[in-house]
Every structure is written in C-alpha cells, then in structure tokens.
Amino acid sequence: MNYNEAVSVLRTIPVFATLDSPSLKLLAFSSSYLSFEDGEALCHQGDPGDSVFVVYEGEVEVSLVLPDNGRIHLARLGRNDILGEMAVICNLPRTADVHACGPLKVLKIEGDVFLQLVTGNPDAAHGMMRVLAERLLRFTEQYEQLRRCMPDPVVP
C-alpha cells in the first residue's frame, strides 16, 4: 500500500470521514505502515497509549489478561476498524492486549498527531464524539440486556 491508497482507506473510516482533504493526506503521510505476522502483539495491556491503529488488511483480536493469567476475549476487529483511540484521548495506558489473527496490515498514527488533527478541526472532533457516543450507547444497551438477564441483586 502506498500513500494514495492510505488516503482512501482513511477516508472510509467514520472518525476521519469528516476530515478535510489536506488533514487526511497529512494523516496518511505521517502515519507508519506496519505489518504483523499471525499472533504478533500490536500492544499489551499497560503499555503507554501513544498511538492509534487502523486495520486495513487482516483481523485483530482484543483480549484481557485476568489476574489469574486466564484470558478473556473481548472483540475481534477487522478491515477499516480503528483501535487505541480511547487510550490516546484520555492519556491512559492500554486497557487490553491486541494480537494479529493471521497476517495483518495496519496504519499506525502517532498519538499526538491524531490529537492535533482531531482537536484542531471541529468536524473531526465531532466525528470522534459521534463514534465515542455510539460506542457508549452500544455498551449501555448491552449493559441493560445483561442486567435484565441477571437475577435482582439482593439489597444488603
């Protein structure tokens, strides 16, 4: 993949869809093009959250290591999915492990570049807000469903 293809990949991603063309090109130009082999880690839980990944080929698995060394699978993301943006926005360490499932290609955007473009551009900031709000909405719905499935908690 080269620079021009990266621009078109980024354009299809909801968070960046509203970015103007120069910012999008800048994003494509300043990001790194990384490839991973099956099972290789993109990041580990607790790593500093300093970059955002955009998958453009292959799939990743997001998982959590439990204190007893067990592992729970959280999500599987694929083409045109974005990950790691929460850690960058909140200046938090990575909250989960991310591994490649099969050969994987991603664009890696430096955290500060991401923040500058997203905060420096009202449209992009709005796009980002919408993505996060949608995610929150989804989680709230899931939480509601879960709560309905659970027996009523006993009041202490």
Binding site: P22, L26, S30
Partner: peptide, 17 residues
C-alpha cells in the same frame, strides 16, 4: 506542497515529517 501549505510556518509537523 499540497500537504503542508495550510500549516502555519514553523509547525512541528515540518520538522517531523
């Protein structure tokens, strides 16, 4: 030129990228 013309002069992107 296409990428950078809108950036203010001295923006750190020039140095970095």
């Amino acid at each position: 030129v296409d990428l950078l013309r809108d950036l203010p002069a001295g923006h750190e992107f020039f140095d970095r990228f």
